[in-house]
Simulated scan of single mutants.
Amino acid sequence: MNYQYILFDLDGTLTDPKVGITKSVAYALDKMNIEVVDYPKLDLFIGPPLQESFQAYYGLNEQEANEAIGYYRERFKQHGLYENEVYPGIEILLETLKKKGKTLAVATSKPTVFAEKILQHFKLAQYFDVIVGSNLDGTRIAKAEVIHEVLLQLSSPDKSEVIMIGDRKHDLIGAKKEGIANLGVLYGYGSNDELALEEPTYIVSNIEELDSILTN
């Protein structure tokens, strides 16, 4: 299928944000007087909405989760934004897609303001027609809501021409709810079992395979 509109998740798909996210989560938990004993567990925070993760993995209630998010952002906006790396091959892929006339967008659960700063810092913002994330007030955190807003900003294109790319189940579920094709990448933070369970349109292991599907 020749997709004209290509939506990318940010964390675990365009960039590897592990250091910035996990250090900021650890900072927030410390502020909440919660000792982190299993640091690999913090990788689970990469991708899903923060409120969901603080509640699911550390048993915080809604109010506590919101307080933890405040501490997280305290560190993240100063340091965590830039403790990040663009996956090798991503910029070349984006440049190739733009040269082929594709319309590219970012659909992330990360607050839009942070997503924009990250993409500008790594000089990737130039490739995207639309960048949409969640709101700082805690609204529009579900991936389906983010994708819906992206499609509105793209003037509601034919959904058969749109594909969503991400590394976690939330990306695939959100795409299905919006009636568009989806593609799971295994070089990020979602396992094959997690992604396969959602029966995505495609699963790829690396950026070379992603390039093959999107450019051919």
Rank of each mutant, 00 (worst) to 15 (best):
S24A: 10
K100I: 04
P48M: 01
A65L: 12
G80H: 00
S24K: 05
L119H: 04
I21K: 03
Y57E: 13
K23C: 13
Y58W: 15
T112N: 08
K100C: 05
V36P: 07
F45Y: 09
Q153Y: 06
E145D: 14
E85V: 04
K31V: 11
P157C: 07
I21R: 00
N66A: 14
T13I: 07
L136P: 13
N135W: 07
I46P: 11
L44Y: 08
F76M: 06
L44F: 07
Y72E: 08
L136G: 07
K41E: 12
I90W: 01
P40Q: 01
A65M: 05
K77G: 07
K117F: 10
Q153I: 02
F114S: 08
D16S: 11
Q78H: 10
V146P: 10
L94Y: 02
L81R: 02
V146N: 02
V25R: 02
L14E: 00
D137M: 08
E83K: 01
E85Q: 13
V86H: 02
A144E: 15
I21T: 05
L119N: 05
G133F: 09
Q63M: 13
Y27I: 09
G138C: 09
E35I: 12
F76Y: 15
E62N: 12
L42N: 01
V36R: 00
I118H: 03
K41W: 03
D38H: 09
D16F: 04
A28L: 06
E116N: 12
V19E: 13
Y27F: 15
S156Y: 15
Q63S: 14
D43I: 13
Y127I: 07
Q55F: 04
L29T: 11
N84S: 08
R73M: 11
P48A: 02
F122R: 00
E64H: 05
E52D: 13
S53F: 11
T13N: 04
D158Q: 10
L14A: 04
L50D: 04
S134E: 07
V113P: 08
D38F: 04
L93F: 07
S155H: 13
G20W: 03
H79P: 04
S109M: 12
G138F: 10
M32L: 10
Q55P: 06
A56T: 15
E74N: 11
F54K: 00
G47M: 01
K143R: 02
S156P: 05
I21Q: 04
E62G: 08
I46C: 09
D129H: 13
I141R: 02
F54L: 08
N61T: 05
T108G: 09
L44A: 15
P88E: 01
V19W: 01
N33A: 14
G20D: 03
F45Q: 01
F122V: 04
G133M: 07
L154W: 07
D38Q: 02
Q51T: 13
Q120R: 14
N66P: 09
T139F: 05
F54D: 05
T108V: 10
E95V: 03
Y127R: 02
L119I: 05
S155R: 08
K31D: 06
F114P: 08
R73V: 15
E83N: 06
K31I: 12
D30A: 14
D129Y: 01
L60W: 07
A105Y: 06
E35F: 08
A65W: 10
K18F: 10
V113Y: 11
T15W: 01
L50Q: 05
G80R: 00
R140Q: 12
